[in-house]
């Protein structure tokens, strides 16, 4: 009997060892490139450190400098908020397209492919294409505006302090709108049809069906879109770097491009780490707010 337990125990240990071995490579990567960096980042933000000097604890010095003295930080901060604020516009547009595509319309899948096509593309290339669209001489927009007589002189969209940020945001929306549409489409298709049939029998008008059935049932998908929009403020580095590199002045500076410039342009890794902490906190706060606005636990993992 004892031998049998021992055999079972050994087998169980071997199995456990195997499971650990299977998990280890992936966990090591996440530990190295997600968990440890996150903690290190926070520590670094309270230190004075550069590759040549030993680290020294300086408390909130970087945060003080950032909040009280750094105008560029504040501009990047507000630009990031504007960037995030544009996401709802894109989500509403995407919802419109998703509603049009989600029907028995002939060729709906073709439209879906076309709208989604821009999402998996290399953002660097997208940035170059749109720079060219906005170009003063050979660009599409100037040609349209000039030939229709709206403007006399060509406009330098990306060189203008007022128009550069909206111009880059339009490009960003063009690229991600397909992803929002796909997420919303998946949400729409998971709404049980009998709800609509019941509403129709009850004589509910189309508007009521949309506001009473479609929108409430779409809440998890809409929350997800909001989170994607928030994360987008981090991942938009490529687009801004290529199209304007934060310029003119700092008119299109986002926190993420400022982090890059502070860290790898001026080798102020410690200061860049402090900005990263601020942006990450901003992200967390806004995610919690979005979750709360979506009526709580909207992002909860479904048990199945």
């Amino acid at each position: 009997m004892a031998g049998k337990v021992g055999w079972y125990g050994r087998k169980r240990t071997r199995e456990l060892a195997l499971i650990v071995c299977f998990l280890l490579p992936s966990l090591a990567i996440f530990l190295l490139y997600r968990m440890i960096p996150l903690g290190w980042n926070v520590v670094l933000s309270f230190q004075s450190w550069s590759p040549m000097r030993p680290a020294r604890w300086v408390g909130f010095e970087h945060y003080e400098e950032m909040f009280l003295w750094d105008d560029v930080f504040w501009q990047a901060f507000w630009n990031t908020l504007i960037w995030i604020g544009a996401a709802p516009v894109a989500i509403v547009l995407a919802l419109g397209i998703a509603l049009l595509v989600n029907s028995d319309l002939k060729g709906a899948s073709v439209y879906r492919t076309i709208v989604f096509l821009s999402y998996p593309l290399m953002t660097v290339a997208v940035g170059i294409i749109w720079r060219w669209m906005y170009d003063e001489r050979g660009g599409f927009f100037n040609w349209v505006l000039r030939s229709t007589g709206v403007i006399e002189q060509p406009l330098g969209f990306l060189a203008s302090f007022d128009m550069a940020l909206p111009a880059v945001i339009v490009t960003d929306i063009w690229q991600v709108i397909g992803f929002y549409m796909i997420v919303l489409l998946t949400g729409l298709q998971s709404i049980p049809q009998h709800l609509y049939e019941a509403a129709r029998i009850d004589g509910a008008p189309a508007r009521a069906r949309f506001f009473r059935i479609t929108l409430p049932m779409l809440r998890p998908s809409l929350f997800l879109c909001a989170v994607i929009g928030l994360l987008n403020s981090f991942t938009s580095f490529d687009l801004v770097y290529i199209m304007t590199n934060g310029g003119p002045g700092h008119a299109t500076e986002l926190l993420i491009t400022y982090i890059y410039k502070a860290g790898f342009g001026q080798t102020k890794f410690d200061y860049a780490a402090a900005i990263t902490v601020v942006q990450f906190s901003l992200l967390l706060v806004l995610t919690v707010l979005a979750n709360w606005a979506a009526g709580g636990n909207a992002g909860a993992v479904e048990r199945d």
Partner: peptide, 8 residues
């Protein structure tokens, strides 16, 4: 997001 951890 990976971009949030680039410095470390």
């Amino acid at each position: 997001p990976f971009q949030a951890t680039i410095i470390p």
